[in-house]
């Protein structure tokens, strides 16, 4: 019954508007339609541009490697009162703190810090299509116990279709280098390469049954090095707590022009 009533009301309304339209001069209607079409095209263009533009820097890495601290160092230049395990990604569109005092107009960077807990890793896929660069944070202090897990995560990232196709540059940042016992970046690079080489053997065996990894990594028959990747993989150092993040900032500015 309700629906019938409504139908009636709507029909009356349509009749009325039709009458009104007939009374209007034809030019006005053309103009109105024109304006409508223009706005539509405008919005369409905007949305298209937004989609295709890749201007996001993604922070990834294992839980506890210091991604959130790096994020706040980049944004505010301080680690505030410390951090705990993230449950949601941190997103921000900002001018890097170190550049905020510079004169002139500086383009802000969109930085996303994706939680490292393995349960939250699927969130990474949401941001990768827009990624202009990926910062893979490794805990240089507590590296060896987490070496395998880190290598697995890095392997997953490097074989993702979005990363391989768009050749998203990756920097492996060895964090916490302010500590004396931290491993050097060369050591970490070698260890990661070694682990990924092993992973390659076991993962390609599985992928026959399970199509989760879309791209093979490196050159078959050779030991794996990061230089074999289609995208650029570099290694850097940083210290989130003391604020020594120049290499990270440099990486960001290489791939997102100011």
């Amino acid at each position: 019954m309700d629906i019938e009533q409504w139908n009636q009301v709507v029909r009356e309304w349509i009749d009325k508007t039709a009458q009104q339209l007939r009374q209007l001069p034809i030019e006005q209607i053309y103009v109105a339609v024109g304006v409508l079409v223009l706005t539509f095209v405008f919005f369409l263009l905007i949305s298209l541009f937004k989609r295709s533009k890749s201007d996001t820097i993604v922070l990834a890495g294992l839980s506890g490697s210091g991604k959130t601290v790096l994020f706040y160092q980049l944004r505010d230049g301080s680690a505030h009162q410390g951090t705990v395990t993230s449950m949601d990604p941190n997103e921000g569109n900002f001018v890097l703190h170190s550049e905020s005092s510079k004169k002139g107009k500086i383009k802000p960077v969109r930085v996303v810090d994706v939680p490292g807990h393995s349960r939250l890793r699927p969130k990474l896929d949401e941001y990768l299509p827009q990624a202009a660069g990926l910062i893979f944070v490794v805990d240089a202090l507590d590296f060896l116990p987490n070496c395998r897990a880190a290598a697995e995560y890095l392997y997953e990232i490097l074989t993702k279709a979005t990363v391989v196709k768009k050749k998203v540059p990756v920097i492996i940042v060895c964090n916490k280098t302010d500590k004396v016992t931290a491993h050097t970046k060369e050591f970490i690079r070698k260890q990661l390469e070694k682990e990924i080489d092993k992973l390659r053997a076991s993962r390609t065996a599985i992928s026959a049954a399970d199509m989760s990894t879309e791209y093979a990594l490196g050159v078959a028959g050779e030991t794996f090095t990061f230089s074999q990747c289609h995208n650029k993989v570099s290694v850097g150092e940083s210290s989130g707590i003391t604020g020594d993040i120049s290499q990270v900032e440099q990486f960001i500015r290489e791939h997102v022009r100011p």
Partner: peptide, 13 residues
């Protein structure tokens, strides 16, 4: 007693 965001930043202790 801690107050932090879901993103993981401690706001107040």
């Amino acid at each position: 007693l801690l107050i932090f965001t879901r993103g993981g930043l401690i706001l107040w202790t």
